[in-house]
Design a protein around this nucleic acid. Structure first.
Lengths: 247, 247
DNA sequence: TAGATTGTTAATCGATTAACAATC
DNA sequence: TAGATTGTTAATCGATTAACAATC
């Protein structure tokens, strides 16, 4: 039976997908939850629970059939059909995304590129011509767009987002460090580059500080909890079923 | 008194920092937890609790003094002193990172760029020459490196990581979609681009599916829980102190 | 002062996990 | 068969949040 699924579990599914894609490409046929645990650092219990959320079936004594689960995950995540993407802002990040081969095998295809810089307009990337952003509305009338990517600088991100909203785009992948204030029914996924760097730096500082005494805390294999009574950071207690007493 | 702090709260601190930086730059002097709630979609309770984790002081009836908290956050996150970065892989993503102005004001400074492509070696970005990656070990002997950035393709990411490990780098910002298997005392922050796109796509699919009936679920202002009894997704119940009964 | 807003507590839900029966 | 590993339950800890006294 399907189990409870939460946003936390949803965010782990792509992680499993990437691993299964790799296993499949390498010709691995079966994998157990404890092997997956080694790859992900999640507990094997959690992995079994997560895979169960979408009805993945393993076999006792065998584990999971890589191809089956890979295809299941493709289906669940919607990576088994074609998605049309457009991108605005053909700068460095934009070009990196367009030219990445990472997304093709999961059905993502760029069909339009836009920029406001006259030097960029007319150039081609991956066989796709860069158009003036003013042509976006017309383009949208003649093409089905599933996802809009924003790869412009912070200043113009809001304008681009509003244009996307106007032409009916319902999903936005945003690389600008800007909070977009859009209609509620538009899904936005931000890629918070600086936040990621700041977190890294903070953990490094804590390590150098001696704020954390175990490397496990820093690597976040374990959760960190500040214990008021101890007056210091400690590994969080395991949630879940308590370990059996040894007598 | 300092409150419990966990990895979840730590990850929110950079979010607050970015907001306070923006408020400060715009000359805003004070901000209340409920205003911050509007920006972040976190509850004002959570914001007050989070700011308390590092001893930030607000004033009743006034809120938080923007400059004070901004400077406090800088100190807490270690963004008030200089960090030396090197980067390997001066491709599109690499160039995007080097040329971003986003990190400078928080003390991050690139001091070395490396690549294995002969066409890149010798070029300069932001006044920094690209060196052959074979020079990295020597470079490390003569320079203090705080953070190593990996912006190469998946194939060579593990090699670069091992070189970083060898020369004693303790913090790695990894853009390659590759799990790095490094010594426990090295902190790795991955930037999982494809996972982010896959999550976006999944939420879009669920929306189109009708799997979620409220836009709030999709935008994740609310947590999503699959309720077995209802047989459908619903908003998760509020944790925390229960609402007072109205009689 | 009156109004606003913090700091903190008390309470609850959900995430997580060890165990183990089931079974391939 | 014997061994391995799943699927699921039962249990617990932590994250979260409404409330409200304190106080600027």
């Amino acid at each position: 039976m399907a189990r409870d699924i939460t946003i936390n579990a949803i965010k782990r599914l792509p992680i499993y997908y990437v691993i299964f894609e790799d296993l499949y490409a390498r010709g691995v046929h079966r994998v157990s939850s404890s092997e997956l645990s080694a790859y992900t650092k999640f507990t094997s219990s959690q992995i079994r629970a997560d895979l169960n959320t979408f009805g993945a079936e393993g076999r006792q004594g065998y584990g999971y059939h890589v191809e089956t689960i890979y295809m299941d995950l493709k289906g669940v995540l919607g990576l088994d059909y074609k998605k049309n993407l457009i991108l605005t802002g053909v700068g460095n990040i934009g070009q990196a995304i367009i030219q990445s081969r990472e997304f093709e095998s999961s059905g993502f295809k760029f069909i339009g590129l836009f920029d406001s810089n006259p030097n960029m307009i007319g150039l081609s990337f991956n066989g796709i011509k860069v158009r003036n952003i003013s042509e976006l509305e017309d383009f949208a009338k003649n093409n089905t767009i599933d996802i809009g990517v924003i790869a412009v600088t912070s200043n113009s991100a809001r304008d681009v987002a509003r244009t996307y909203e106007k032409i009916g785009i319902k999903a936005i992948w945003n690389f600008a460090p800007t909070v977009l204030d859009l209609d509620k029914d538009i899904i936005v996924e931000n890629v918070p580059l600086s936040e990621s760097l700041f977190t890294l730096n903070y953990l490094l500082k804590c390590k150098n500080d001696g704020t954390f005494t175990s490397d496990d805390y820093v690597n976040r294999a374990k959760d960190i909890v500040y214990d008021k009574k101890l007056g210091q950071y400690r590994e969080s207690k395991k949630r879940g079923r308590p370990r059996k007493e040894n007598n």
